[in-house]
Amino acid sequence: MSVSVQSADFDVSVEIEKLTRGNASIGAIATFVGKVRGDAGGQALASMSLEHYAGMTERELERIEAEAVARFKLSASCIIHRIGTLLPGENIVLVIACAPHRHDALSACDFLMDYLKTEAPFWKKETTDDGNGSWVDARSSDDTARARWSKGGT
């Protein structure tokens, strides 16, 4: 289990190798990578900046990860989230879930992202090509996605 909030980029294959090396119980690895899109509401995006609540963020990510490990009996997992200024095409977030079988790995990956998007204290600000900056609004569809896990769904 590991959590990292960092400005540096990550390498998915390096992270998978770190999690799985020497662990023969792992039969399935699910990964999710979130990236910066090149458009913001129909306008070209120049950059995106990510702010977070240092201290609280790490605590929330660790709590969310521990919940996923317990719920889906994960063999290993990691969450990496970048902060600072990012350009279109750059990586934002990486979630890896390792389990003996694929359903748990895939569900855990989905669960981790739904919780991260609604509970981890990060905020995105988009700057468009014309120099205007605006904070990204939270989406109710993320709350809906998060809510399905509390009905006992897997």
Binding site: M56, T118, D137
Partner: peptide, 10 residues
């Protein structure tokens, strides 16, 4: 005590 908008990470 921290105050902030609904979160938008991920």
């Amino acid at each position: 005590i921290g105050f902030f908008p609904p979160v938008t990470g991920g």
